[in-house]
């Protein structure tokens, strides 16, 4: 049986290798991918947009509609996760731990609860005391991760990066906070309502930029007509428009990442979990 599997693997590999021999050479100007619009982008992008990163120019300017609806898809994913998983019913029993002694209190009365503070802390079935090493290192690393995320968003039109990548990095820093401390620390600092508003705000910034272009007398997402709003930057106006749109994408992606994480780890209750 193992020999048979080995033969199948070898055959598949051989077919795949045979298939790659039909591929065009790397960077071949006559390959199908670079015959139609690619040459136009390479020749004209810098003249038209002043954005050195062609990929960002193509994604957010030439194909701005596509990216806008991608952002809307991400927003929909966050809303869908919220609607499917969010559970507003409170738990019937509460567990607390007494911080100085470590005694666990089990309160069965639904209506009674203890104040959380220096004396009592939360407790649940998967509770583990946050580790000092993890907490310290994450506290050092999280600001750097967030600065890097802002850098990736802000330099989207100059170097590899952009709103999606920067937003994911920023969201991962928030998730790291939830992992290294606990979920309640994150929910207390970044409330659910704030995340929902951010997710909608990101899409609103993107679509609002398009509508603003319409109001200024151009086509939807035609950043060139925004020039009167930014005096003295007329030649960079398309790159600036891309930057605004990227910021919107970044905010939406960051909020949706965090919403999905919080809802999945706590089964929609936002009270326990990793």
């Amino acid at each position: 049986m193992r020999i048979l599997a080995f033969i199948v693997v070898c055959l598949t590999g051989a077919f795949l290798l045979y298939g790659t021999s039909e591929f065009p050479d790397w960077g071949d100007p006559n390959s199908p991918a670079s015959l139609h619009v690619a040459a136009y982008y390479i020749e004209k992008t810098y003249e038209e947009t002043h954005a050195p990163n062609f990929v960002t120019a193509v994604v957010t300017d030439y194909r701005g509609f596509d990216t806008m609806f991608e952002t809307a898809v991400i927003f929909t994913a966050g809303i869908g996760c919220f609607l499917l998983l969010r559970d507003f019913r409170g738990k019937k029993e509460h567990y607390y731990h007494h911080i100085p002694t470590g005694v666990i209190l089990h309160i069965k009365d639904e209506k009674k609860s203890l104040t959380i503070g220096k004396e009592f802390g939360y407790m649940d079935k998967e509770w583990v005391p946050p580790d000092l090493i993890n907490k310290t290192v994450c506290r050092i690393l999280i600001p750097f991760i967030q600065i890097y995320a802002l850098y990736v968003v802000a330099h989207g039109d100059y170097s590899p990066g952009g709103g999606f990548q920067g937003g994911v990095i920023f969201g991962s820093s928030l998730i790291l906070l939830a992992i290294s401390y606990d979920l309640k620390t994150l929910v207390k600092r970044v409330s659910e309502r704030l995340l929902g508003i951010f997710a909608a705000l990101g899409v609103l910034i993107y679509a609002g930029t398009g509508v603003l272009c319409l109001v200024m007398g151009g086509n939807f997402l035609d950043y060139g007509v925004l020039a009167p709003l930014f005096p003295g930057m007329a030649d960079h106006i398309r790159a600036l428009g891309m930057l605004v749109v990227e910021i919107g994408v970044g905010i939406a992606v960051m909020a949706v990442m965090t919403i999905i994480y919080i809802n999945i780890v706590s089964e929609g209750r936002h009270d326990e979990g990793l």
Binding site: V128, D131, I133, N134, V137, C138, L141, F144
Partner: peptide
């Protein structure tokens, strides 16, 4: 610098999770 901060912490956490 960042790798030498993050990597030992990750190893520590994985061992911790294994023990738990």
């Amino acid at each position: 610098f960042f790798v030498s901060l993050a990597s030992p912490t990750a190893t520590h956490t994985i061992v911790d999770a294994g023990m738990r």
